[in-house]
Protein backbone atom coordinates (compact mmCIF):
# COMPACT_ATOMS: atom_id res chain seq x y z
CA UNK A 1 0.00 0.00 0.00
CA UNK A 2 2.82 2.28 1.04
CA UNK A 3 4.59 1.56 -2.20
CA UNK A 4 1.55 2.32 -4.35
CA UNK A 5 1.17 5.61 -2.55
CA UNK A 6 4.83 6.41 -3.16
CA UNK A 7 4.31 5.45 -6.81
CA UNK A 8 1.38 7.80 -7.15
CA UNK A 9 3.41 10.59 -5.61
CA UNK A 10 6.32 9.85 -7.92
CA UNK A 11 3.98 9.89 -10.91
CA UNK A 12 2.44 13.14 -9.77
CA UNK A 13 5.85 14.69 -9.26
CA UNK A 14 7.09 13.53 -12.68
CA UNK A 15 4.05 14.96 -14.39
CA UNK A 16 3.74 18.33 -12.68
CA UNK A 17 7.43 19.06 -13.12
CA UNK A 18 7.18 17.90 -16.75
CA UNK A 19 10.29 15.84 -16.15
CA UNK A 20 12.44 16.04 -19.30
CA UNK A 21 13.23 12.34 -19.44
CA UNK A 22 9.62 11.44 -18.83
CA UNK A 23 8.40 13.64 -21.65
CA UNK A 24 10.98 12.24 -24.01
CA UNK A 25 10.25 8.63 -23.08
CA UNK A 26 6.52 9.19 -23.30
CA UNK A 27 6.75 10.81 -26.69
CA UNK A 28 8.90 7.96 -27.93
CA UNK A 29 6.41 5.41 -26.61
CA UNK A 30 3.64 7.19 -28.47
CA UNK A 31 5.73 7.54 -31.59
CA UNK A 32 6.65 3.88 -31.71
CA UNK A 33 3.23 2.50 -30.83
CA UNK A 34 1.22 4.91 -32.98
CA UNK A 35 3.48 4.24 -35.96
CA UNK A 36 3.08 0.52 -35.38
CA UNK A 37 -0.66 1.01 -35.10
CA UNK A 38 -0.89 2.93 -38.36
CA UNK A 39 1.17 0.38 -40.25
CA UNK A 40 -0.56 -2.62 -38.67
CA UNK A 41 -3.98 -1.12 -39.38
CA UNK A 42 -3.06 -0.41 -42.97
CA UNK A 43 -2.23 -4.11 -43.31
CA UNK A 44 -4.79 -5.71 -41.02
CA UNK A 45 -7.97 -3.80 -41.84
CA UNK A 46 -8.00 -4.61 -45.57
CA UNK A 47 -6.69 -8.12 -44.95
CA UNK A 48 -9.23 -8.96 -42.25
CA UNK A 49 -12.02 -7.56 -44.41
CA UNK A 50 -10.81 -9.37 -47.49
CA UNK A 51 -10.76 -12.57 -45.46
CA UNK A 52 -14.40 -12.00 -44.52
CA UNK A 53 -15.64 -11.53 -48.07
CA UNK A 54 -13.59 -14.03 -50.02
CA UNK A 55 -14.10 -17.75 -50.18
CA UNK A 56 -10.93 -19.56 -51.08
CA UNK A 57 -9.35 -22.87 -50.46
CA UNK A 58 -7.11 -22.13 -47.51
CA UNK A 59 -9.47 -19.67 -45.86
CA UNK A 60 -10.05 -21.75 -42.74
CA UNK A 61 -6.37 -22.53 -42.43
CA UNK A 62 -5.56 -18.84 -42.83
CA UNK A 63 -8.01 -17.86 -40.11
CA UNK A 64 -6.68 -20.55 -37.80
CA UNK A 65 -3.13 -19.34 -38.43
CA UNK A 66 -4.19 -15.79 -37.74
CA UNK A 67 -5.71 -16.77 -34.42
CA UNK A 68 -2.63 -18.75 -33.52
CA UNK A 69 -0.37 -15.81 -34.38
CA UNK A 70 -2.52 -13.65 -32.14
CA UNK A 71 -1.40 -15.73 -29.18
CA UNK A 72 2.26 -15.58 -30.11
CA UNK A 73 4.29 -14.47 -27.07
CA UNK A 74 5.85 -11.06 -27.78
CA UNK A 75 9.26 -12.24 -26.59
CA UNK A 76 9.29 -14.84 -29.33
CA UNK A 77 8.42 -12.19 -31.87
CA UNK A 78 11.19 -10.05 -30.41
CA UNK A 79 13.68 -12.85 -30.67
CA UNK A 80 12.79 -13.61 -34.28
CA UNK A 81 12.89 -9.96 -35.30
CA UNK A 82 16.19 -9.68 -33.45
CA UNK A 83 17.67 -12.61 -35.35
CA UNK A 84 16.44 -11.18 -38.65
CA UNK A 85 17.75 -7.68 -38.01
CA UNK A 86 21.01 -8.69 -36.32
CA UNK A 87 24.14 -7.81 -38.24
CA UNK A 88 24.64 -11.54 -38.68
CA UNK A 89 21.04 -11.99 -39.81
CA UNK A 90 19.52 -11.68 -43.28
CA UNK A 91 18.56 -8.00 -42.90
CA UNK A 92 21.66 -7.01 -40.93
CA UNK A 93 22.93 -4.66 -43.62
CA UNK A 94 20.00 -2.35 -42.99
CA UNK A 95 21.47 -1.57 -39.56
CA UNK A 96 18.02 -1.38 -38.00
CA UNK A 97 18.67 -3.29 -34.79
CA UNK A 98 18.41 -1.18 -31.63
CA UNK A 99 16.54 1.62 -33.40
CA UNK A 100 12.92 2.74 -32.98
CA UNK A 101 12.28 1.27 -36.43
CA UNK A 102 13.12 -2.20 -35.13
CA UNK A 103 10.69 -1.67 -32.26
CA UNK A 104 7.99 -0.61 -34.68
CA UNK A 105 8.59 -3.69 -36.80
CA UNK A 106 8.27 -5.97 -33.77
CA UNK A 107 5.10 -4.24 -32.62
CA UNK A 108 3.61 -4.42 -36.10
CA UNK A 109 4.22 -8.17 -36.10
CA UNK A 110 2.62 -8.47 -32.68
CA UNK A 111 -0.53 -6.44 -33.27
CA UNK A 112 -1.32 -7.09 -36.94
CA UNK A 113 -2.82 -10.55 -36.30
CA UNK A 114 -4.83 -9.16 -33.39
CA UNK A 115 -6.32 -6.33 -35.44
CA UNK A 116 -6.84 -8.56 -38.46
CA UNK A 117 -8.67 -11.13 -36.36
CA UNK A 118 -10.98 -8.59 -34.73
CA UNK A 119 -11.56 -7.01 -38.15
CA UNK A 120 -12.43 -10.38 -39.62
CA UNK A 121 -14.99 -11.08 -36.88
CA UNK A 122 -16.67 -7.71 -37.23
CA UNK A 123 -16.59 -7.69 -41.01
CA UNK A 124 -18.08 -11.16 -41.30
CA UNK A 125 -21.29 -9.94 -39.70
CA UNK A 126 -21.44 -6.79 -41.74
CA UNK A 127 -20.74 -8.70 -44.92
CA UNK A 128 -23.61 -11.09 -44.23
CA UNK A 129 -25.83 -8.03 -43.93
CA UNK A 130 -24.52 -6.23 -47.04
CA UNK A 131 -23.78 -9.25 -49.22
CA UNK A 132 -26.78 -9.21 -51.58
CA UNK A 133 -26.79 -5.45 -51.98
CA UNK A 134 -23.10 -5.13 -52.77
CA UNK A 135 -23.28 -7.99 -55.26
CA UNK A 136 -26.36 -6.49 -56.85
CA UNK A 137 -24.61 -3.14 -57.16
CA UNK A 138 -21.83 -4.82 -59.09
CA UNK A 139 -19.11 -3.65 -56.72
CA UNK A 140 -15.49 -4.57 -57.25
CA UNK A 141 -13.59 -6.32 -54.46
CA UNK A 142 -11.84 -3.08 -53.68
CA UNK A 143 -15.13 -1.22 -53.37
CA UNK A 144 -16.52 -3.94 -51.14
CA UNK A 145 -13.55 -3.81 -48.80
CA UNK A 146 -13.66 -0.02 -48.63
CA UNK A 147 -17.41 0.07 -48.03
CA UNK A 148 -17.19 -2.52 -45.26
CA UNK A 149 -14.25 -0.80 -43.60
CA UNK A 150 -15.99 2.55 -43.72
CA UNK A 151 -19.36 1.36 -42.48
CA UNK A 152 -17.79 -0.92 -39.88
CA UNK A 153 -15.36 1.70 -38.65
CA UNK A 154 -16.68 1.69 -35.11
CA UNK A 155 -15.93 -1.98 -34.63
CA UNK A 156 -12.60 -1.50 -36.33
CA UNK A 157 -11.77 1.36 -34.01
CA UNK A 158 -12.22 -1.03 -31.11
CA UNK A 159 -9.89 -3.47 -32.83
CA UNK A 160 -7.32 -0.78 -33.46
CA UNK A 161 -7.51 0.35 -29.84
CA UNK A 162 -6.98 -3.20 -28.65
CA UNK A 163 -3.92 -3.28 -30.89
CA UNK A 164 -2.65 0.01 -29.55
CA UNK A 165 -3.15 -1.14 -25.98
CA UNK A 166 -1.16 -4.24 -26.65
CA UNK A 167 1.58 -2.29 -28.43
CA UNK A 168 2.10 0.42 -25.84
CA UNK A 169 2.03 -2.02 -22.93
CA UNK A 170 4.39 -4.49 -24.52
CA UNK A 171 7.89 -4.89 -23.11
CA UNK A 172 9.40 -8.29 -23.99
CA UNK A 173 9.87 -7.79 -27.71
CA UNK A 174 10.94 -4.17 -27.75
CA UNK A 175 13.43 -4.80 -24.97
CA UNK A 176 15.16 -7.34 -27.20
CA UNK A 177 15.05 -5.46 -30.51
CA UNK A 178 15.27 -1.92 -29.10
CA UNK A 179 17.86 -2.58 -26.40
CA UNK A 180 16.37 0.00 -24.01
CA UNK A 181 19.06 2.52 -24.94
CA UNK A 182 18.80 5.77 -23.03
CA UNK A 183 17.85 8.67 -25.31
CA UNK A 184 17.43 6.35 -28.27
CA UNK A 185 15.11 3.42 -27.72
CA UNK A 186 13.95 3.70 -24.13
CA UNK A 187 10.17 3.72 -23.85
CA UNK A 188 7.81 3.65 -20.88
CA UNK A 189 7.63 -0.11 -20.52
CA UNK A 190 11.36 -0.76 -20.83
CA UNK A 191 12.05 2.13 -18.44
CA UNK A 192 9.66 0.50 -15.98
CA UNK A 193 11.49 -2.80 -16.32
CA UNK A 194 14.80 -1.03 -15.77
CA UNK A 195 13.65 0.85 -12.68
CA UNK A 196 12.08 -2.29 -11.26
CA UNK A 197 15.43 -3.99 -11.77
CA UNK A 198 17.05 -1.29 -9.68
CA UNK A 199 14.49 -1.90 -6.96
CA UNK A 200 13.28 1.65 -7.61
CA UNK A 201 9.63 0.74 -7.26
CA UNK A 202 8.28 4.23 -6.71
CA UNK A 203 9.66 5.53 -9.98
CA UNK A 204 8.71 2.33 -11.80
CA UNK A 205 5.18 2.61 -10.51
CA UNK A 206 5.11 6.31 -11.35
CA UNK A 207 6.02 5.50 -14.94
CA UNK A 208 3.37 2.78 -14.84
CA UNK A 209 0.71 5.29 -13.88
CA UNK A 210 1.84 7.57 -16.68
CA UNK A 211 1.49 4.63 -19.04
CA UNK A 212 -2.03 3.88 -17.85
CA UNK A 213 -2.99 7.54 -18.10
CA UNK A 214 -1.60 7.67 -21.61
CA UNK A 215 -3.54 4.60 -22.73
CA UNK A 216 -6.73 6.02 -21.26
CA UNK A 217 -6.11 9.37 -22.89
CA UNK A 218 -5.62 7.89 -26.34
CA UNK A 219 -8.74 5.76 -25.92
CA UNK A 220 -10.84 8.74 -24.91
CA UNK A 221 -9.42 10.89 -27.67
CA UNK A 222 -10.22 8.38 -30.36
CA UNK A 223 -13.69 7.72 -29.00
CA UNK A 224 -14.37 11.44 -28.74
CA UNK A 225 -13.23 11.90 -32.33
CA UNK A 226 -15.51 9.17 -33.58
CA UNK A 227 -18.41 10.56 -31.58
CA UNK A 228 -18.21 14.08 -32.98
CA UNK A 229 -18.04 12.56 -36.39
CA UNK A 230 -21.11 10.40 -35.75
CA UNK A 231 -23.07 13.15 -34.11
CA UNK A 232 -24.36 14.63 -37.33
CA UNK A 233 -25.43 11.33 -38.74
CA UNK A 234 -27.02 9.48 -35.83
Amino acid sequence: MNEIWAGLLAAFHLIVTLDGDLVEITLRSLQVSLSALVIASALALPFGTWLAIRRFRFRRATIATLNALMGLPPVVVGLIVYLLLSRSGPFGVLGLLFTPTAMIIAQVVIITPLIASITHQAMRELWAEYHDLLISLNTSNRQRVLTLIWDGRRALLTGALAGFGRAIGEVGAIMIVGGNIDNATRVLTTAIALETGKGNFALALGLGFVLIALALLVNFAIHALSRTERHSTW
Partner: peptide, 11 residues
Protein backbone atom coordinates in the same frame (compact mmCIF):
# COMPACT_ATOMS: atom_id res chain seq x y z
CA UNK B 1 -1.38 9.59 -36.99
CA UNK B 2 0.29 10.32 -40.27
CA UNK B 3 1.81 13.36 -38.63
CA UNK B 4 3.19 11.15 -35.87
CA UNK B 5 4.78 8.96 -38.49
CA UNK B 6 6.45 11.88 -40.22
CA UNK B 7 7.64 13.25 -36.91
CA UNK B 8 9.08 9.91 -36.10
CA UNK B 9 10.85 9.59 -39.43
CA UNK B 10 12.37 13.03 -38.92
CA UNK B 11 13.61 11.97 -35.50
Amino acid sequence: MIRALTLFLCL
